[in-house]
Amino acid sequence: MSRSDSEVFLQQRQQQIISAAKNCFSRSGFHGASMADISHESGLGAGQIYRYYSSKEVIVSETIKSIAESWRMFLLKNLQLETTISNIIDTESDFWRDWSFRERCLLLEMYSEASRNKSVRALLVHEEQLLFTELEAIFKRQMPAATPEERSDRIQFLLMLVDGVACRTFGDKHLNQQELARINTLLAGYLFS
């Protein structure tokens, strides 16, 4: 096997393990899922897994990195599309279509872990800074007359709104459509003008 083939195989195995870990963690949480669960889910023996990751903590860390990066990329893609507040608020809308139930579970688990783990919190802060910088560039092109403070306020508000909706994703699915339309009208002029 050539060096490049070996690197590809390594990356495929690591991805296989992280994918299995995501399935396990979305069902049982970072602390509830065991290495045996990950081994069973991945179809690999524990010894094989330890060739690629030295401990469960490393798997958790790599999984969190993957979740955080996916979340950043999802938001970057969706927040630059023309959207409405009602699409952001409604978890069944097109805005959320590409963010699966499994990803929603993992996002909540990641935020929970960040509340008690400094390194996870630091990782999330880093990803949010990257997202903010990328959105700032997009908003600057879309809103050239706005001040940096206005753009920053809008970005912060959108991120809080999206995070709040993501965290309440398991709540009531029956939104009052009249109230949603009223909120959308109130906020649309502020956010998307």
Results as ranks from 00 to 15, higher is better:
77 K>I: 12
146 A>F: 15
33 A>L: 10
21 A>V: 07
85 I>L: 04
122 A>E: 15
96 W>Y: 04
143 M>P: 03
84 T>S: 08
95 F>T: 04
116 R>Y: 11
149 E>H: 13
5 D>Y: 02
6 S>I: 04
111 Y>I: 08
93 S>F: 04
94 D>N: 10
69 E>S: 13
185 T>A: 02
62 E>I: 04
1 M>W: 03
141 R>M: 14
47 G>Q: 06
8 V>Q: 08
115 S>A: 13
53 Y>V: 04
160 M>W: 02
112 S>E: 07
85 I>S: 00
129 Q>K: 08
29 G>D: 09
132 F>P: 05
103 E>M: 13
171 G>S: 12
5 D>M: 01
69 E>T: 15
168 R>W: 09
186 L>G: 01
102 R>D: 15
73 M>H: 15
99 W>Q: 01
156 Q>T: 11
1 M>K: 04
12 Q>P: 00
52 Y>C: 01
182 R>Y: 12
69 E>Y: 14
38 I>H: 07
63 T>E: 11
41 E>T: 06
70 S>N: 13
140 K>N: 09
127 E>Y: 05
50 Y>G: 00
125 V>A: 10
172 D>W: 02
68 A>K: 13
79 L>K: 11
13 R>Q: 08
37 D>S: 06
183 I>F: 03
131 L>Q: 06
129 Q>D: 14
152 S>Y: 13
49 I>F: 00
35 M>S: 04
15 Q>V: 02
58 V>N: 07
45 G>Y: 08
101 F>V: 15
120 V>L: 08
183 I>A: 01
51 R>T: 08
51 R>H: 12
13 R>H: 00
57 E>Y: 12
135 L>H: 03
76 L>H: 10
46 A>V: 01
164 G>C: 05
109 E>N: 07
168 R>M: 12
